[in-house]
Every structure is written in structure tokens, then in C-alpha cells.
Amino acid sequence: MTDLTERLERCYTGAVYDVMRERGQENCVLPPEICGLTPQTRVAGPIFTLRGVAFDTQRDKDADYLLPWVRFLSEAPAGHVVLCQPNSGRLALMGELSAETLKSRGVRGYIVDGGSRDNSFICELGFPVFCRFRTPRDIVAKWVPDATGAPITIGDVLIRTGDYVLADFDGVVIIPAEIAEEVVAAVETVMSEEDKVREAIRAGRDPVEAYLEFGKF
């Protein structure tokens, strides 16, 4: 798992998508609104899923609605990337203390189909976060997790714990666990071939000649 994660981390999403498309798996890209907090933000690794539910009205503030969230922080496995479907378009499902906790526990990053807050602090921390929007609204008495490790859907992409993710400046791609090894190997071949095209272009070769020789562009 570690070796595959390291190899995937050296890839980029465009090449992964090309390989997935060639295998009839082009429905692998999350909605483009889900972006890293900075252009340099990127993360790769096996997935651990989180799902939650928002309340229609704010609940009793005296109840401990944060405890289930803290339990999730305790359960998230090291070496994984958390993907969260919060089912909320208003609340922040990541903040600085949570990011600090996940990073300290060895979690590789966090991708949410929702909001994030304390984002300048998270950027300083260097913990990779991809989100749909930024907001100061927190989850206290408004949201709780209702499943960890269960299948989720973001956009029209089914995501399971154990699948792989690569996220960079271009977007987020999901690779089913059962084909992750072969996809990464194919992407490595694609990148090697692209290097040959790149070298040919830099050497002054005509792009048509380079394309006909290497079959890539």
C-alpha cells in the first residue's frame, strides 16, 4: 500500500484520467468545484470515507454534538486520505484543530464535498485539504457524522474505503481498488512516453513528427 501510494503521488491527474478513460472508467473525476486550498496542494493515497447529516434546525447546544466528530478524528487511519460527503452546502467540515489532529495521526489529507474554515491556519500547517467552498460556519449542533468506511457518492462518482485518490491543481480522480495497481503502472508508462515527446519538442522536432513517432501529445 505504501509503495503504491508513493508511486501514485508522483503521477498527475491528467495522466490518470487518460488511462482510466482508455479502460472505460472515465467517470472518475470529482466535481471541479472541489479544489485545493492552494495551487500547490496535492495528495494521494488509499481512501477512508466519512458521511454525515445536517440538521434542519439548530439542536440543543447543551448536547455534546462534537463528540461523534472527535470519535471520527480518532478512527481515521494513518496513511489514508479522508473523503467526506457531508450532505451539507452551508457548513465547514474541516478546521484548524481537526486538521492538526489528523496530520498528527498520520492521515495524508482530507477531501470534502462541502466547506472548510480556518483555512489560512491549515495552509500554514501544510495539511492537504480540498473543499467545495470556504465558510466560517461550524458544525456545532448542526451536523453529525452518520457513517465511516461506508460507500459514498460525490457528484456521480462512487467512492469506497480502500479505493485510491489523487488530487492536484487540476482536480480529483478516484481509482477503484481492484485496478489501482495496473492503472498506476500504466500511468507511469504514459509519463515516460510523454517525457520522450517533451525532450523531442525541446530539441526542435516538429510536433507532428514527435506525435507520429511516440503516439502521445
Rank of each mutant, 00 (worst) to 15 (best):
E26L: 10
N27T: 04
N27L: 10
C28K: 08
C28N: 14
V29D: 08
V29Y: 10
V29A: 15
L30K: 09
L30D: 12
L30A: 09
P32R: 10
E33C: 05
E33P: 01
C35S: 11
C35R: 14
G36I: 07
G36P: 09
L37A: 04
L37I: 09
T38P: 00
P39R: 12
Q40W: 06
Q40K: 14
T41G: 07
R42F: 11
A44C: 14
G45E: 02
G45L: 02
P46S: 12
P46K: 08
I47N: 04
F48L: 06
F48S: 15
T49M: 06
T49P: 04
R51L: 05
G52F: 00
V53S: 10
V53K: 12
V53E: 12
A54E: 14
F55K: 03
F55W: 06
D56R: 13
D56H: 04
T57M: 10
D60A: 01
K61P: 06
D62E: 11
D62L: 08
A63P: 02
D64C: 04
Y65S: 13
L67N: 04
L67R: 09
P68K: 04
W69C: 09
W69G: 10
W69K: 11
R71I: 13
R71G: 07
R71P: 01
F72I: 12
L73N: 09
A76Q: 08
A76C: 13
P77N: 13
G79V: 00
H80C: 15
H80I: 02
V81S: 05
C84N: 14
Q85N: 15
Q85K: 15
P86A: 11
P86I: 11
N87C: 04
S88Y: 04
S88T: 04
R90Q: 12
A92P: 09
L93Y: 06
M94C: 12
G95F: 02
E96C: 08
E96A: 15
L97T: 15
S98C: 06
T101D: 08
L102K: 14
L102G: 14
K103V: 02
S104T: 10
S104Y: 03
V107R: 03
V107D: 01
R108H: 04
I111R: 07
I111M: 07
I111H: 06
I111S: 13
I111A: 10
V112Q: 11
V112C: 14
D113H: 15
D113S: 15
G114F: 05
